[in-house]
Design a protein around this nucleic acid. Structure first.
Lengths: 343, 343
DNA sequence: CTGAAAGCGCTTACAG
DNA sequence: CTGAAAGCGCTTACAG
């Protein structure tokens, strides 16, 4: 910029005015400055200008995702990007991999770059490390999982209701012996999904049998092994509820390997691309991923625009998508229950 | 930082030294400065420090992807993130959506933030707008598609060889009438894949029939319609080669809707998650997505480390993954061809 | 309409 | 071992 000023024979301030399209510069100077900028290949440095510019905004936000490569994370990222784009805000994204120290490092790195706000899918169980940052006014919105030990905005899916609807659906199709396949019991969404499962059983007066409630399943292969184990029990389940997409995939593999995919019912939580191509299709409880991302971004920008109200919690509904596997009948006759409305 | 200096009664420079863990500060001062920093909730501003710091590096890179939400893009992003992470570099990512003006805007926005380098999956056919930036020394690596009108590094898949291998595979299974389903003919990878198709036909002395070569297919639904059209021709193809994953999915839907998925052979380009759960599984030519991302990132950082050699072009091989659909026999007897090696 | 001075938060290059 | 000055590239706040 100094060089441009020198070449066009004006002050720094005038160049700054031209570059920022400020009014009140004579035509003559505007042309001269632009010409000089062109010949010098001048590129404005947004970072430097933000240093002094009021508010000190950097026009960037930071995204902490579970893993950018998984469809849930990348769906969120895309929805957030679309909102940010309209405001000329760029997005940093990073994968946390369910590692709380990685979460902390990434958040710190974003803050050190002075992002204007943070959108976080937390991995750890203590976000108090962000308290300082929150106090100093950096907007932050948590998505998919609520923050712990920190009072901040959160946008969540109604995991418990979704899970309850799934299990109720199985009960309505004549099942009583329904296995539960859960993710890490330390993840809050996993806890909520298990609660939905027990809710549904309670409501239908079906006893809870812990021998068919399996948790801490992380991978598709683990899920396959667990389901095979369940199916070889003396009194095997007639239906399976898988609380997460990798787990659902593992369950599908297990059922197929035993040729029981047409006889054992299955409902899974979370969407799975192309699942409708399977035979039978798989009944799934799907989250509104774009909605979660867009809502979180909207909320973040509202905070950035000065909304200082108390921390909000938005809960988005899930949808049960009938695919075939969840409608395989069980051994019981299930009287229609008028008045029952799926959440 | 100024406040920390004031509170601990030392100069700015001393605080700077402590914050950056520079040697040569007395124990006493270090403790005092750290204490002051803690009570003031001091957070260093990396952006400001980079302004003066030698090299002016920002420790950030910018990623221009087709669409962060698609698995190919997010796979690349993850591989690049992993390399960047080791160097403490943060990554900006943005979706270009096959829109060349969006590509340009995003690239400009990244450059204005002074990213240290750019990794680009180009959408447009003219990257000369980056010539200035390239001359001024910003490292940039193109991935998946080569740049046009710009001399720069590129990391590509061997699309032509992959496509040739796929079609040769079909020929080897007794097919001669093989339909080609292509993406936008304006995309360079689509051109290469078509070239691989004609290569394979030529090599086997199979005549090219343009009535079964269809291009500019963008969506899965379009592909479905095209395949149905092909199958209702008087002399329909016995095999289909789909040059891209959305197109492959559309083709699968079409074959199933006509119950011809067990009789018409299909090979697709690009990986599709969970495809092995289908029956038959689908034979695919898969790209080494992680390899592309990691190679691009490595190359970018090598450039950042001062490698000034001429622009490089890395071509990574693809792999034909046998799934079942590509092994459905065609009407011709295909003599084994000793010595033929798939690329 | 134009510009000289001070400053954003930090670092370099030099003195002591 | 410590610090005062100048500077990174730009903007604010003020004068003329």
């Amino acid at each position: 910029m100094r060089d441009v000023a020198a070449l066009s024979g004006v002050s720094l301030k005038t160049v700054s005015r031209v570059v920022n399209d400020e009014a009140g510069v004579s035509e003559d100077l505007v042309t001269r400055v632009r010409a000089a900028a062109r010949t010098l290949d001048y590129q404005p440095n947004v970072t430097a200008s933000n240093l002094r510019r009021s508010g000190g905004k950097t026009q960037t936000i930071g995204l902490l995702l579970e893993n950018v490569a998984n469809p849930f994370s990348s769906g969120l990222q895309r929805a957030i990007e679309d909102v940010a784009r309209e405001r000329g805000v760029l997005v940093f994204a990073g994968s946390v991999d369910e590692d709380s120290s990685r979460e902390r490092d990434l958040a710190t790195a974003f803050v050190a770059r002075r992002v204007d706000g943070l959108i976080i899918v937390p991995a750890g169980h203590d976000q108090s490390y962000l308290a300082t940052e929150r106090r100093s006014g950096t907007p932050m919105v948590f998505v998919d999982r609520a923050p712990n030990h920190l009072d901040a905005d959160a946008v969540l899916s109604d995991n418990q209701a979704g899970s309850r609807a799934a299990v109720t659906h199985l009960i309505d199709h004549g099942h009583r012996r329904i296995a539960y396949l859960g993710d890490l019991a330390s993840i809050s969404t996993a806890v909520e999904r298990l609660a939905g499962y027990t809710d549904a059983l309670d409501h239908a007066r079906v006893g809870l049998d812990l021998s068919i409630v399996r948790q801490d399943i992380r991978t598709s292969d683990q899920a396959t092994a667990v389901v095979i184990d369940l199916l070889t029990m003396p009194d095997p389940p007639t239906a399976v509820f898988a609380s997460q997409n990798l787990v659902t995939i593992g369950a599908i593999r297990a059922l197929r390997s035993r040729s029981q995919h047409q006889s054992i019912a299955l409902v899974g939580f979370d969407d799975i691309p192309l699942i409708d191509l399977l035979n039978p299709g798989v009944t799934l409880v799907v989250q509104d991923v774009s909605g979660l991302g867009a809502t979180a971004a909207d909320l973040l920008f509202r905070r950035l625009d000065g909304d200082n109200g108390p921390a909000q919690r938005c809960v988005l509904p899930t949808t049960l998508v009938v695919g075939g596997s969840g409608e395989i009948r069980g051994p019981y006759r299930s009287p229609a229950k008028p008045g029952r409305v799926a959440p």
